[in-house]
Amino acid sequence: MGAKPCIPVEVTVRFPRSVLRSALVTAVAAATAIGLAAPASAATGRYVALGDSYSSGTGAGSYGSSGSCKRSANSYPQLWANANAPSSFAFVACSGAQTSNVLNSQISAVTSSTALVTISIGGNDAGFADVMITCNTSSDAECVRRNQEAQDFARTTLPGRLNNVYTQIRSRAPYARVVVLGYPHIYHLNGYCWGGLSETKRAAINQSSDVLASVISGRAGAYGFTYIDARRTFDGHEICAAGTRWINSVTWPMDESYHPNASGQRGGYYNPLEAVA
């Protein structure tokens, strides 16, 4: 014969309210101790500046002993660190960096004690240095073609590369404020330039900045990061603008061409960063 089936019996146990209240308080306190405590203030915790030449400050001068990375004393990361005195400051952004360089040689600076991370990245992945060379040495049609090629890359391949970087940042510093800084328009169209690139080339280059902004802001938003749209913060200060220009035209050394100068680092990047961090 089979065993008699077990019949479940529901038992209700009543605890005094004082006991329940005490248990709830203990549970909440324990959860907070495990990891729900508020993160350190960005202005007092560790600050890590990641990224490429737009973050290192290439084009703004005063590079000290940073070598080919060209980390400028006039760059927005250094200006923010000077003004806010974080508990520690790791300035690892480097001229020429792509997403792979951030993952291979920069991301280790981000730790669990990090309160603020800033980054500009993606332009070199999409080949915009080559875009500018092509537009300065080739026809309108070839410049437009090269920009379209870069834009296609930005739409299709760059999102996955940004995801890899942003995932690592969030994993290493789950409570840090992360600010992603975009790229400005290089040119003010129909502006005050005589000679140089044609308006067709300038428009194609600016369109590439628009595509980058759309892709980068979209991925940053998906991770809950703050995005600073440099097209807006540099507005009126591009090459060919009537106002004070914050972006170098063709200059020497050549790698500093089409990069923010010291005024651009301060007005276009540092000031808006100070407003959000």
Score class of each variant (00 low, 15 high):
residue 80 W to T: 07
residue 273 L to W: 02
residue 198 S to L: 11
residue 65 S to I: 01
residue 205 I to F: 06
residue 105 S to A: 13
residue 1 M to A: 12
residue 198 S to A: 08
residue 246 W to I: 05
residue 26 T to P: 00
residue 221 G to A: 12
residue 88 S to Q: 13
residue 149 E to L: 11
residue 271 N to W: 03
residue 224 G to F: 03
residue 88 S to T: 15
residue 174 P to T: 12
residue 218 G to I: 11
residue 126 A to G: 10
residue 132 M to D: 04
residue 2 G to F: 09
residue 46 R to Y: 03
residue 87 S to L: 03
residue 91 F to N: 14
residue 220 A to H: 05
residue 58 T to Y: 04
residue 51 G to W: 06
residue 261 N to T: 12
residue 222 A to R: 09
residue 8 P to R: 11
residue 119 I to H: 03
residue 108 S to M: 06
residue 230 A to F: 02
residue 238 E to T: 01
residue 151 Q to C: 01
residue 13 V to L: 12
residue 142 E to M: 05
residue 8 P to W: 11
residue 247 I to D: 00
residue 137 T to E: 14
residue 125 D to Y: 04
residue 197 L to N: 08
residue 105 S to C: 02
residue 166 Y to P: 00
residue 59 G to P: 03
residue 208 S to R: 00
residue 184 P to D: 06
residue 111 T to W: 02
residue 231 R to Q: 15
residue 46 R to G: 00
residue 17 R to C: 07
residue 65 S to E: 04
residue 39 P to L: 15
residue 113 S to F: 00
residue 159 P to D: 12
residue 143 C to L: 07
residue 11 V to G: 01
residue 42 A to I: 02
residue 170 R to G: 01
residue 78 Q to E: 09
residue 216 I to C: 04
residue 190 N to C: 05
residue 178 V to P: 00
residue 186 I to K: 00
residue 3 A to R: 15
residue 124 N to K: 12
residue 132 M to N: 13
residue 173 A to E: 05
residue 151 Q to D: 13
residue 208 S to L: 13
residue 149 E to K: 09
residue 177 R to V: 02
residue 235 D to Q: 14
residue 198 S to Y: 07
residue 64 G to I: 07
residue 255 D to C: 05
residue 190 N to E: 04
residue 11 V to P: 01
residue 238 E to G: 01
residue 263 S to W: 13
residue 115 A to L: 04
residue 78 Q to K: 15
residue 220 A to S: 15
residue 182 G to I: 09
residue 256 E to D: 14
residue 245 R to Y: 00
residue 54 Y to K: 04
residue 215 V to H: 02
residue 151 Q to A: 14
residue 63 Y to H: 07
residue 24 L to Q: 12
residue 106 Q to M: 10
residue 131 V to N: 06
residue 153 F to G: 02
residue 141 A to D: 15
residue 69 C to G: 06
residue 40 A to V: 13
residue 116 L to Y: 07
residue 227 Y to D: 12
residue 216 I to A: 05
residue 233 T to R: 05
residue 163 N to K: 12
residue 62 S to L: 13
residue 57 G to S: 10
residue 7 I to P: 02
residue 89 F to L: 11
residue 170 R to K: 14
residue 248 N to H: 12
residue 31 A to W: 03
residue 205 I to R: 00
residue 100 S to F: 01
residue 21 R to M: 10
residue 237 H to P: 02
residue 171 S to W: 01
residue 30 A to C: 09
residue 201 K to P: 09
residue 126 A to R: 04
residue 243 G to C: 07
residue 224 G to I: 14
residue 235 D to L: 09
residue 219 R to L: 03
residue 129 A to K: 11
residue 213 A to I: 01
residue 180 V to R: 01
residue 114 T to V: 13
residue 92 V to T: 10
residue 126 A to T: 03
residue 21 R to S: 15
residue 235 D to N: 14
residue 199 E to C: 10
residue 125 D to T: 09
residue 267 G to I: 13
residue 70 K to W: 10
residue 7 I to H: 14
